[in-house]
Amino acid sequence: MILSIKNLHANIGEKEILKGVSLDIREGEIHAIMGPNGAGKSTLSAVLTGNPAYTVTQGEVLFNGKDLLKMSPEDRAREGLFLCFQYPVEIPGVSMVNFMRTAVNEKRKYQGQKELTASEFLKLMREKKELVEIDDRLTKRAVNEGFSGGEKKRNEIFQMAMLEPSLSILDEADSGLDIDALRIVAEGVNKLHNDKNASIVITHYQRLLDYIVPDFVHILYEGKIVKTGDKKLALTLEQKGYDWIKDELV
């Protein structure tokens, strides 16, 4: 088991957003989480990654058997949790190369591995750049600075390839992407997927799931997972909209 969430409740300020989420994710699985705006989808990814804007009030999360909620955001990352941000942040003045080299080596140190030398690092970077088809142009600049929406998302996938997470969360990875950019992002995710890791794909629309095929689809509604199914559930949602779920719950 990679991730086990039990009865997770979380607030932003005084407002409860997650109202008892439970979810188990095993090696090799892709889980889609769908739901209307405001259901708590992005809150879930923020809470799992340790965003300080949210407070967990109840529940338990085990990540590879360890208590995730007790860890700092950086330790969660070093343990193998990766968030592909909905809105990747621009960091002027911090070069992509230095940023990635620091990130890769911080993770290696944490896991008791030797740091990569400059040439080992550059070799790794070349391999991963080819794998996710990212331009030299992007990795030579400051982190996300002046990147288009598509370039930012591609850069997230590149970082994911560099850090080889055991669990990656893609938060609305398709927002703001045209169909070509979407395909490249999805291909990257598919190439990185294997039977040892897992992904959570958070999305409002079914569209992305044509390219990243999930094993499970969960519907998050008003802070709870109200329905779980296979990929067909996403198609039903696409046809009937979210009102159907609301009606069914009454």
Partner: peptide, 13 residues
């Protein structure tokens, strides 16, 4: 937000 982004990549605060 930039600090959190970097933490999410494994850099200490």
């Amino acid at each position: 937000e930039a600090i959190f982004y970097m933490q999410q990549r494994g850099l200490q605060k």
